[in-house]
Amino acid sequence: MAEELSHENENNESVVLKLLSEKDMYGYEMIKTLRKRAQNVFEKKAGMLYPLLHGLESNGTLNSYEQYCRGKMRKYYSIAKEEKQEE
């Protein structure tokens, strides 16, 4: 069971990193894009995207910045430079 969970986490992580390697995105934008591509690994559990993003940010894999868009603050995520170089 634990192994399955960790495998799932790794899979979700690689999906998110692949997505962010294309361009910087905010949480909802990621879910929307995954849905369009029919690979929404967060179906019916979109909230679980955030612990994953925050964890990747905390360990330095991702960076984040905020930007106002139509009067609302959006938190964008991007891949940290070192990670990009490794790819």
Binding site: F42, K44, K45, A46, G47, M48, Y50, P51
Partner: peptide, 9 residues
């Protein structure tokens, strides 16, 4: 509903 379980998250 799409967000899933708030406790788990």
């Amino acid at each position: 509903e799409d967000m899933g379980d708030p406790v788990e998250t």
